[in-house]
């Protein structure tokens, strides 16, 4: 599915300084009954955002007006748990284009890259700097520069580089997806399939 190209993103960020944020928190299973990819942002962090009577939990970050932006900053091991791509869809649909953490769970990271959310892994020290900066001033802007693979805390200019392989970087910059690539090598795949033992 097509997604918006990603180049340089400058935005404020929403801090979630909790470790091991799992996919059941990002989108609980009871909201996985849809058969189309629409509206998942409404239930992003559902049980942290809402009480059981559907009133808002005022102290949760997404419910605090002072925090906003297209970047979500999470604690270590963000996205652990299930393979549900709905978690990445919910993040995207809510309006985030980038998730920053000091460590990501594998499947969540891959899902993000496949749908146009950029996972940016930083050092634990830099992550703490970001949390501190936002806590001091929620209007703190971050710059995510994909071509240069660099994340910068704009008020101080402190920055760190991040990893992404060339193939995925090119996809993100151009809004390409893997199926386009695979369909282009379909002949090779057919030949390979004829020679598999199982």
């Amino acid at each position: 599915m097509a997604y918006d190209k990603f180049n340089i993103l400058t935005s404020t960020a929403v801090p979630l300084p909790i470790e091991n944020v799992d996919t059941d928190q990002i989108i609980p299973a009871r909201f996985l009954k849809a058969t189309e990819r629409v509206g998942f942002g409404d239930n992003l962090f559902r049980d942290w955002r809402y009480n059981q009577d559907n009133t808002l939990k005022e102290d949760f970050v997404l419910n605090q007006d002072k925090f906003s932006g297209k970047i979500l900053v999470g604690g270590k091991n963000f996205g652990s748990g299930s393979s549900r791509e709905h978690a990445a869809w919910a993040v995207y649909d809510y309006g985030f284009r980038c998730v920053v953490s000091s460590f990501f769970a594998d499947i969540f990271r891959g899902n993000c890259l496949n749908i146009g959310v950029l996972p940016v892994q930083v050092s634990a020290a830099f992550l703490q700097k970001i949390f501190d900066a936002i806590e001091n001033d929620p209007s703190t802007q971050l710059e995510i520069n994909l071509p240069e693979q660099k994340i910068t805390l704009l008020p101080t200019g402190e920055s760190e580089s991040f990893d992404i392989n060339d193939y995925k970087k090119n996809n993100m910059l151009n809004g390409f997806d893997d199926i386009d690539y695979l369909l282009n090598i379909k002949k090779d795949i057919e030949t390979f399939a004829e020679n598999t033992p199982l």
């Binding site: 599915m1 393979s83 791509e85 709905h86 499947i107 899902n111 496949n114 997806d177 893997d178 199926i179």
Partner: peptide, 8 residues
């Protein structure tokens, strides 16, 4: 396990 884009 894989995501839905990969299922596709």
């Amino acid at each position: 396990g894989i995501g839905t884009s990969e299922v596709e």
